[in-house]
Design a protein around this nucleic acid. Structure first.
Length: 110
DNA sequence: TAGTTGACCCCGC
DNA sequence: CGCGGGGCCAACT
């Protein structure tokens, strides 16, 4: 009763630690949790994160900087709106200057 | 119970 | 340089 919930909570914790105006990637979070290569699980956790308040899942994008999960925010424009509201420029469902805004838990939290 | 899908990523052809 | 397949772990049907 603790395994999966622990994994979910862990993902939430990292996502919540993402600074405002920054973005992270599934692979980075997955690697930080030890599920390196299992980035899909991070996506699953974030899917459940929709029901979790205070979890800025909109700050989590794929390795390409694209808003992969924008279609899961209820409205396809919500994710982009939230990112732009934080000062992040989004164009064509892709984070501009993504490389510079990328926030890596393994490096930043270290 | 078993099969398929999924907010992904990497390698091979 | 473009396309396809495999790998990962868990949830859904």
């Amino acid at each position: 009763m603790t395994t999966k919930e622990n994994f979910f909570e862990d993902v939430y914790a990292v996502v919540r630690l993402i600074p405002e105006g920054r973005v992270s990637t599934y692979g980075a979070i997955a690697a930080y949790l030890g599920r390196k290569g299992s980035a899909r699980m991070v996506g699953w956790a974030l899917n459940a994160a929709v029901t979790m308040p205070n979890v800025p899942a909109h700050r989590v994008v794929n390795r390409n900087g694209q808003l992969s999960g924008k279609g899961h925010f209820g409205e396809p424009t919500l994710m982009q709106s939230l990112l732009e509201a934080e000062g992040i420029k989004v164009k064509n469902d892709t984070v501009q200057n993504f490389k510079d805004l990328l926030w890596n838990p393994q490096s930043e939290l270290l």
